[in-house]
Every structure is written in structure tokens, then in C-alpha cells.
Design a binder for these strands. Structure first.
Lengths: 328, 328
DNA sequence: CACGTCATTTGGATCGATCAAACTCTCAGA
DNA sequence: TCTGAGAGTTTGATCGATCCAAATGACGTG
């Protein structure tokens, strides 16, 4: 294990003071070019790296962003790709991602509170925003830097930077795609009303149909499971639907057992596997924007209030469908 | 933003010295019970939390574990669940997980080197071990604490703690399961020889067949894609196979388009979605064991050299199969 | 009653960086 | 020649915890 190289070692090696080394790294413009070169050479020669702990102690900045890692449920989600993008974008701005877990809003707030005392992350990224999100208001009250991936769905939580993907635009595009294929009776399988994300996605579908003067009555609510998706699809088909737009790939998976003209949401690996047309979120970009909004705020730059990205329809032909006679 | 509470504040409040507060938290046995109570009360009253930075500065311990977040490829992997388990287990031992990305072994080593200089993680968790893994030897040479999830496949990399799931035991169980269903000609679709994981999984299959005196010639190598899985399945079925054990769910997905008697590996969401029987890894436990091995080593306790866990066969009935006439 | 022992508590130094303020030159202008 | 400004560099203090060595106090013993 190489001995720790401190700023004092570099200073000695380059025949300058500690402060000058610090200046070379943090405010190079105040240092004479010749000195700067000499110090940089010393830094390289010794393999010096600033100690995050020491720097944090003095400046109060940790260069850490904290993110909650979500529980995976049925695994048909999008979080892991977002997290990967976040880690990469953060690294590009010299930030690192610190993970934590929580079971609900309340425990997440407790964890955030604890982290603030111990590791003092410079910023937080919240995902899965929802109506009456206690986390956002908690952070906002304390004036702590954070971004949400997911817009604030309640009025009271507005006013913080966020990044989101335009679900309504997505389902609208999906519905138009089905209209283009000649479908006239297109249903929507959603979640229970009241979820911001779900309602938004339903709105896009109904907007597209309304624009054509078509029936927007063919919609049902589910708990999001494939089973309920299948049941809902069954009923909607009986009521005359020939195609279905779904609030998620999970629901779409069930629907696909009833009819092939189905569009899902999130473009999960499952969609790719079974040939389900689905709406893909630009997750790497969403993550990059989150980091951008946060780091702008952290370095005092003016920040965009929010960013709304568009999903992309990924069209596929179903390769798998319900097996009528399950053997083995 | 609540003002920072330091150990000195607590000391003043409880009418003791800083050191006594520190002792209450770190070596309670040297403090008189009554004092201990008084200090703890002060800690609660003020909401004191140790500053990780200050502690690290003095002790050299960061209470951080660093893990590389893998790229997701086709998303049919297991890493996100492992990572979640790791974060939870780490938190239970008062460690936090720090993420980083890397594109290959070399860049991962560079990143680790950099992290060591800056954030000084106390330990590392390496995943996706392989033959001639440069990362493990690099860390071992420097005597840095790390665990791998995945055993060391080369002789030279042995000697560090690891946690792994017994792939051979898994495929052996899967093969026996198929034998129990009456199959006699069971094929194996694997990866190119030379990958430790892949060879191990093939070995379990061949062991089970050999034990019954059956033919172990029905095996092919692929690049792991569903397409090649499908092609391999086609050929093996033509050569007489009635059932197939697969090295991954991805390959199995392709194989399932040829015959329904297929077993995959990893029990990914895709397997659940399409009703693919698959071998599930005990990821939460694997993660917990990784943390255990690491923290044991970090606190000087004797550590188990390694841990080998068994996968579980999750049997399902295919709900989806190849669609003969793809409409829409 | 002085003294050693043990349990408990304390003050000062320290980790490695940055802040704030002071210092040293050099050079232009009075 | 002296002064002042400005560029460039240095010194000392500080962030909040823990290490170390030493002080304090209670208690039993010869």
C-alpha cells in the first residue's frame, strides 16, 4: 500500500508552500504559469490526490450525491439503467454516487437526515415522485439541493428542479401509431386513478383519440400486474377494442396474451424479449440532466427550472404469444 | 438547515470532555454507566451525528464500500438485485455503498486507484470475476480489503475471500429435474469454453447425465444471445434432444422458441414473464455474505475463506411460446 | 496516613486540506 | 527617492473527530 501523499509532500517536492499547491489545483489563475507547471509536475511525480475527507472538513463539500436504490419488485423497471447513467454523469463532474435504501417516504427522510449528519452529501436525487411527496417538501423546507426524476405531481411540491419523461406525449404517439395501423377502437389499461404518472399516460392516449373524434371509454384500471392486465385486456377486447395502449410493460405482458396489438411502457428487457412494442425512456439523458441541474445549483450557476424529455416508441413484432396447450 | 452539532457541543451539554463523548460512542465499556447515560441523553437531545469526514481524517476509516455498477447489456442479469442487497447489508453494519463505473479491467483499476486516493473506501466488492482477473491480483498485491462475488477462476488469483453461487450444482439439479420428467436426451447450450462460469455450469449438466450413463455429446457453444440460443436449440433438437439446459435466461429465451422443455439460469424478470423454468441465485444472501466477509476482515475478525451458495430451481410452465403467424 | 492501584476522565496534538490575512517583490508615478 | 498598487506567494488558524499521555479520584493496604 503506497504511503499517503499529502499536499505538504507536493509542496516540499516543488519548493513552494502548501497554499500554492492548493491554488494550482483550485484557482490556477492566481498562480504564475511557471510555478503552476512545476507544481503539476510534482503532483504527477508523486501521484498526489486530494483527500476528500480533509477537503470536506474545511469546505463542507463532500462531492457526493445520494440516491435511494429502489426495490426491484417484478424487475420490470427502469431504475437500474437510470442509476448507471447517473453514476457516469456524476463522475464526469467529479461527483460520486452514494446509495441508500428505504422502505417508504418516512424512512427515506430519516435516512436522508442521518446521511446529512454523517456523510453530508452535497445533493440528493429522488426518484418515483408521487402526489403529496413528503420527501421533496422536507428537502425544500431545509433548502437542501436536490432534483427529482419525476415531476412534482402535487401543487404544494412545486418549485424545485426536476427532470421527467413526457408520458402523455409517449402514449399519444403510441396511440397515433396504432391509428396509423388502421385501428379505430383502441383501449387503455392503466393504474388506479390518482397516480400522477398513470393519469398522465392515460391523458396522452385519450388526447390522441379525442383528436380523431374517437371513443375514449375503453379504459380500465389495474394494480399493474400482468394478471390484471390480462383480465382488463379480455374485457376491453370483448367491448370491441382491437388494440391496447398500456401504462407499463408489466400490464402489457398480460394484455399480450389476449391480443397482439399492444404497446407497453418503459421498454424493459421483457419487452425486448417477447417482442413487445414499447415506449423507451431516454434514461441516460435523464440522468445526465439530473446531474446537470444539481451541479449547476451546487456551483451557484443559474439553473433551468426543469427538463421534460420525450420517450421513443420502439416498435417490434411479437415473437411470443400465449401457448394454447402448455406442455411440460 | 439545522446548525451542525459537533462533539464539543455534546460535551458541553453533558458537562464532560470531548473525549468522554467519543468514548461513550466508541468504547462504552470504559465509561461509568451514569456518565454514559447522561452523554447519550445529550446526543439525543442535540441530534448529534459523527462527522464521517472528521472521523476518517483521524482514523483512516471511511466506512465506505466501493462497487462498480455494471452496464446492463440486454438487461437479463442479476446485478441490480445483488446491488440492492449489498446496500442493505452494508447499512446494517454501518457501511455505505459508493458506486463507480468502468469499461474494462484496466479502467476499473485506474478508478479504484483514484478512489483510494480520494475517498479511501475501506473495501471493494468485485463482480463478474473471470480468468486472469487483473483487478483481483492488483488489489491483492496491495493487500487491500476486497471480496469478489464470483470465485477466482484462475489459479493465480486464489487466496482472497469470495462468495459465489454453485452453478454446477444448479445445472445438475436442473438436469435431474428434466430426467425426473422422463427426458433421456438432454442438451446443454452454453457459452464459448474458457469462461469459468460457463464451463462450471456445463460441468453440472454433464455430471448429472454421466451419473445416469447418458450421452453428454449434446452441447453447443454460443455468444449468449437469444438468436444463437435459438439456433443451437434447433440443432440440438434435430440431433435428438428433447430438453435443454441453458447457461443463461438469455440463451434459454431463444431455445424456448424451439421446444418448451428448457431451463434457464438466473431467474431474471424475463423468465418470470414468459414462464421459463430457471435457476435463481440467492442474491440477497450472497450480498450479505460479501459484506460479512469484508467487515470481518476490516474489523480484524477471523474470516471464512469463502462461501459457496446453492441456486434454487424455480419451475414454471411456459405461458408464452413462439407465435407461428405474427400479425400486426 | 502515605502510597500504589485501578477506574474514570481530561487536555493537547493531530489527521490534510483550505481560508484569511500578511508578506515580498516589482514597477509605475509623484 | 519614496509611496502605492498589484501580482505572487507564504504563514497561521481552522474544520471535527480520535489518539496519546497524563491527571484525577476512590479505595484498599501496610
Amino acid at each position: 500500500m503506497a504511503a499517503k501523499v499529502t499536499i505538504a509532500d507536493v509542496a516540499r517536492y516543488a519548493n513552494v508552500s502548501r497554499q500554492t499547491v492548493s491554488n494550482v489545483l483550485n484557482s490556477p489563475e492566481v498562480v504564475k504559469e511557471e510555478t503552476r507547471q512545476r507544481v503539476l509536475a510534482a503532483v504527477n511525480a508523486l501521484g498526489y490526490r486530494v483527500s476528500a475527507a480533509a477537503r470536506q472538513m474545511r469546505t463542507g463539500r463532500s462531492r457526493l450525491l445520494a440516491v435511494r436504490i429502489e426495490t426491484t419488485q417484478d424487475g420490470m423497471n427502469v431504475f437500474d439503467r437510470f442509476l448507471h447513467g447517473l453514476t457516469e454523469s456524476a463522475a464526469r463532474s467529479d461527483y460520486r454516487v452514494l446509495l441508500y435504501t428505504a422502505t417508504d417516504d418516512r424512512s427515506e427522510i430519516d435516512t436522508i437526515d442521518q446521511l446529512l449528519g454523517e456523510f453530508e452529501p452535497d445533493g440528493f436525487v429522488l426518484t418515483s415522485t408521487h402526489h403529496g411527496d413528503a420527501r421533496a417538501s422536507w428537502l425544500a423546507e431545509r433548502d437542501l439541493p436536490f432534483v427529482t426524476f419525476g415531476r412534482p405531481w402535487g401543487a404544494s411540491e412545486a418549485g424545485h428542479p426536476w427532470v421527467d419523461v413526457d408520458g402523455a406525449a409517449g402514449t399519444e404517439a403510441a396511440t397515433r401509431h396504432l391509428l396509423g395501423d388502421g385501428h379505430r377502437r383502441i383501449g387503455f389499461i392503466g393504474w388506479e386513478a390518482g397516480s400522477g404518472v398513470g393519469d398522465d399516460r392515460r391523458a396522452g392516449w385519450s388526447r390522441a383519440l379525442a383528436a380523431e373524434g374517437l371513443d375514449t371509454a375503453l379504459t380500465l384500471e389495474t394494480d399493474g400486474s400482468p394478471d390484471q392486465g390480462r383480465a382488463a385486456a379480455q374485457e376491453l377486447v370483448e367491448r370491441g377494442a382491437t388494440a391496447l395502449v398500456c401504462v407499463s410493460d408489466s400490464v402489457a405482458l398480460g394484455a399480450l396474451q389476449v391480443t397482439p396489438a399492444v404497446v407497453g411502457f418503459d421498454d424493459t428487457p421483457v419487452a425486448a424479449a417477447i417482442g413487445l412494442t414499447s415506449l423507451g425512456q431516454p434514461l441516460a439523458e435523464a440522468a445526465a440532466r439530473c446531474v446537470e441541474l444539481l451541479t449547476d445549483r451546487l456551483s451557484g450557476r443559474p439553473t433551468a427550472p426543469h427538463v421534460l424529455l420525450s420517450p421513443t416508441l420502439v416498435t417490434r413484432k411479437p415473437t411470443l404469444a400465449i401457448r394454447k396447450d402448455p406442455r411440460s
